[in-house]
Amino acid sequence: MAIRKLSPETVVQMLKDNGILKVKLFDADQNTMTALAGSGIEVMVAIPNDQLAVMGDYNRAKDWVKRNVTPVGNEPFLTSYNGSFLNTTFPALRNIQNALNDAGVGDSIKATVPLNADVYSSPTDQAYPSSGRFRSDINDLMTQIVQFLSQNKAPFTVNIYPFLSLYGNDDFPFDYAFFDGAPQPVVDKGTGIQYTNVFDANFDALVSALKAAGYGDLPIIVGEVGWPTDGDRNANTGYAIRFYNGLLPRLVGNRGTHSTLAWLH
């Protein structure tokens, strides 16, 4: 948390000066929204998880769209939430997108749900990306959501943090969290693809989960990716630099596995 916050106008100018044309906001702060208006920057505006329940009321959803135009929630299906948002997320998503459609902007503005990578996984006896499936406890719900996203030509949004693979897991191969080459690549027994980093493997597991649900052509946006610099033994500036030095050239050079390149937006 910054002690002296920069003004929204200053931040917007810094974004433009550095060629950053897409941002994600976690709420619809009016001052920030005003500063971004007309800037040419593409904005993803989130509805906080604690507001999902009220978005089950279509009139409330329409009112929100009038004031802000959106992801719905942020990682609402984390296992640590113990199902708190399972019954409110999809109704909120549906109402927000329908409100956008009714407002005549549904073709250009899409509602989506940024999800953590823990909504999918591979079974322990087939622990490779091509076996990726949505979590069994939310499989039906996820299928409903991806069907709705597909019907509205909206993207699937996922947050992937390779750092979390190391967090609390001493057995995870350390170099596999970065992009400069793991000593022993992980081979997918289903496809033969060799993975040298967990980001590509994680992403391709999502692609497999979407295919298994019948929506393999759904566009995917990585909403969040990064590396922390404090709070854990592996959270420091040196490792963050190593991570970004691998990630950013891959993004600029459009490098990755076939699945990653085909779906990543």
Rank of each mutant, 00 (worst) to 15 (best):
E75H: 04
A61C: 11
P8K: 14
E9Q: 15
N197Y: 10
A177C: 08
T191G: 15
R233Y: 03
R255Q: 15
N74Y: 11
I3R: 15
V225P: 03
F179D: 07
T157K: 09
I221P: 02
Y239T: 02
I96C: 04
V113P: 03
G253T: 04
N169Y: 07
T89Y: 01
Q151P: 01
R250W: 01
R133F: 00
T10K: 12
V65W: 05
N159P: 06
A46S: 15
L164S: 09
N95D: 13
R133Y: 04
V113M: 05
L21P: 00
N245I: 10
G246D: 02
L93H: 10
F163M: 10
F174W: 07
R255F: 01
D118E: 15
K22G: 13
F85D: 02
L93G: 05
A53Q: 15
D57F: 07
V198K: 06
D107P: 03
P183F: 03
Y195V: 12
V222L: 02
N95G: 14
Q51L: 14
D180N: 15
P249N: 06
L210S: 09
H265G: 07
K24F: 00
R4D: 06
A35D: 07
M44W: 02
S7N: 01
P8H: 11
A61G: 14
N49H: 07
A2R: 15
T229K: 12
S39K: 12
I145G: 07
L25K: 09
K110M: 11
P48S: 12
A61H: 07
Y215W: 03
D102L: 02
I47R: 06
F85P: 02
A213W: 12
D171E: 10
G231P: 14
N116D: 12
T257A: 01
L6K: 14
